[in-house]
Amino acid sequence: MKNKLKIAFFGSSIVSAYWNGAATYYRGIVKALHKMGHEVTFYEPDIYERQKHRDIEDPDWCKVIVYPEDKVTLEALLRKASEADVIIKASGVGAFDEFLEYEVTQLKKDDNLIIFWDVDAPATLDRIESDPADPFNELIPKYDFVLTYGGGQPVIDAYERNGAKRCIPIYNALDTETHYPVEPEERFEASLAFLGNRLPDRETRVEEFFIEPAKNLPKEKFILGGSGWGDKDIPKNISYVGHVYTKDHNAFNCTPKAVLNISRDSMAKYGFSPATRVFEAAGAGACIITDYWKGIESFFEPGKEILVAKSGQEVTDILAGLTSQKAKAIGKAAYKKVLAEHTYEHRAELLEKVISAKLQDENATVEQKQ
């Protein structure tokens, strides 16, 4: 695409990963779009103390507008955003989501695109399909696209069944400028480390795939990172380190013998939803053990580039037989794969191609009308 696009993006937060798993995803996509010459303005609400827990200052690769939790201010920002070529409403902004979902559809013009970007499609689909009265049901057909964080064909089929004109997965990927191999740090030494916030639809799987293996292997050291686990009853061989800032992710991934990925229930149900964490860890050359989800082989080769466990007992068995040499070989293979196929440049190229084709179609329609 030769023309520079102005993109307005309403999301949870791009400057803070605090209680915000989508931060790395947003940063990778937006940074890659900037490199392609596009201009992105990211609008985020000042909520959940995220601004007090920033990982980055305002970047030079996008304009960040932090707004108060106030509808009048938001209405003014929507008027400004209406001047953009592409207007994106992400799911899970955290403030005035229903209001934004409706108001963005009102900004549709002949020469622009409006997009709903679902960073938790399984949860959204479960919600709307269980409640026909959910107001978002009527809005889905009004968006030019629904983009999703993952989900593959099951999510595509579900969204199009619910009226989406077109649904396209834009998967998580690796931001090579942020996540890369570093020297190990003693504070993160362990046989297995897991990083993830405590969420209702993840906790049971954490108990099975992380806490139970720790109980089964009492002589091995485990590390738990993420917000919300402070009052969780855990074995003595699990060290809880709390929220791990982005700047420490590489050491967290590089130091342990292996790192664990645990899908949320909804993500595991639909499959084809590799978490941001998987690509972060692979980008640091980590040996990844993941719970099973459909579609893994579309991203990594099980046994060679990633280790797959279908139960907590399988995690225990994998760790018991995992040598440092084998772990390093698997991490090296995963690192090679993500650089070749799964960077945010790869994802942004797909996004640019999709947007370009649609805008060309719309411009041609306008010219025909004239």
Rank of each mutant, 00 (worst) to 15 (best):
residue 47 I to Y: 09
residue 51 Q to H: 09
residue 53 H to I: 09
residue 54 R to D: 00
residue 55 D to I: 10
residue 56 I to Q: 00
residue 59 P to I: 05
residue 59 P to Q: 07
residue 60 D to Q: 06
residue 61 W to S: 05
residue 64 V to P: 03
residue 64 V to K: 05
residue 66 V to N: 01
residue 68 P to S: 13
residue 70 D to A: 13
residue 70 D to F: 14
residue 72 V to Y: 12
residue 75 E to N: 08
residue 77 L to Y: 08
residue 80 K to Y: 01
residue 82 S to L: 00
residue 85 D to E: 11
residue 85 D to N: 13
residue 87 I to W: 02
residue 88 I to A: 05
residue 90 A to I: 01
residue 90 A to P: 05
residue 92 G to T: 10
residue 93 V to H: 04
residue 93 V to D: 00
residue 96 F to E: 01
residue 97 D to I: 04
residue 98 E to K: 12
residue 99 F to Y: 15
residue 101 E to N: 11
residue 102 Y to R: 03
residue 104 V to I: 15
residue 106 Q to A: 02
residue 108 K to P: 00
residue 110 D to V: 09
residue 111 D to R: 15
residue 111 D to I: 15
residue 112 N to S: 14
residue 113 L to I: 13
residue 114 I to A: 06
residue 117 W to L: 12
residue 117 W to M: 10
residue 118 D to E: 14
residue 118 D to T: 14
residue 119 V to S: 05
residue 119 V to N: 10
residue 120 D to P: 06
residue 121 A to N: 09
residue 124 T to W: 10
residue 127 R to T: 10
residue 128 I to L: 08
residue 128 I to W: 01
residue 129 E to W: 09
residue 129 E to Y: 07
residue 130 S to V: 05
residue 132 P to R: 00
residue 133 A to T: 08
residue 135 P to Y: 03
residue 139 L to I: 10
residue 140 I to M: 14
residue 140 I to L: 15
residue 142 K to D: 02
residue 146 V to H: 11
residue 148 T to E: 04
residue 149 Y to H: 14
residue 149 Y to P: 06
residue 151 G to K: 07
residue 151 G to H: 08
residue 151 G to A: 12
residue 152 G to T: 13
residue 153 Q to E: 15
